[in-house]
Amino acid sequence: MTGIEYCALYKKSKDRAYDTLFESYCDYVYAIVYNKLRSIASREDIEECVSDIFSDIFFSYDTTSNFAGDMKGYVGTVAKRRAINTFRKLTANSGHFSEDAEDELINIGADTDIEQDSDLAETRSILISKINELGEPDSTIIIQKYYYDRSSSEIADMLSMKASAVRMRAARALNKLKTTLAAAGITM
């Protein structure tokens, strides 16, 4: 969705503009927030953060702008900033981090060890490619189950399958993934 499209829609109907923007980017924003908070936040906290991001965007996006590009960049920036703030808040509350540890917090998204960072990026890339090699619907099932931590019945509802079939496919796909990753030198 481009900025101009959003502004045009906003002039006709604010509500439609909000709905369309949300529908266009909710998966993207959720992915960003979940990626940042999955280890420390509940699903409710994550939903709260996503809704904060969209209210921020609805409130602050300049509806008179003539930006012809995709709003994804803007949305992504707002989402990442808000997700980091939420991470900071949650970890501060749980005592994992001190509010004063600014330097540490600023670098949350990036490891300072360049070599390790490079290794991690490479491993991550292999993992993604091996998941993709599983093909559909197994790759989706694997991501939903083991990354997004969804239950088999939730996945079944979304993919119009039976929960037992999801469980079976997930187990088989995970074994297959382990095998292919092992062949690539990665152990799960």
Binding site: C26, D27, Y28, Y30, A31, I32, Y34, N35, K36, R38, S39, G76, I108, G109, A110, L120, A121, T123, R124, S125, L127, I128, N132, S139, T140, I143, Q144, Y146, Y147, Y148, D149, R150, E154, D157, M158, L174, L181, I186, M188
Partner: peptide, 27 residues
């Protein structure tokens, strides 16, 4: 998490985030 290897997807780069966002997860 049951499978800790998936933790490596955290703090992912933009390309990985794009791929992850393409997986339908929200009801």
């Amino acid at each position: 998490k049951e499978n800790r290897e998936f933790n490596m997807l955290e703090n992912a780069d933009d390309k990985t985030l794009d791929l992850l966002s393409e997986v339908p997860v929200l009801t």
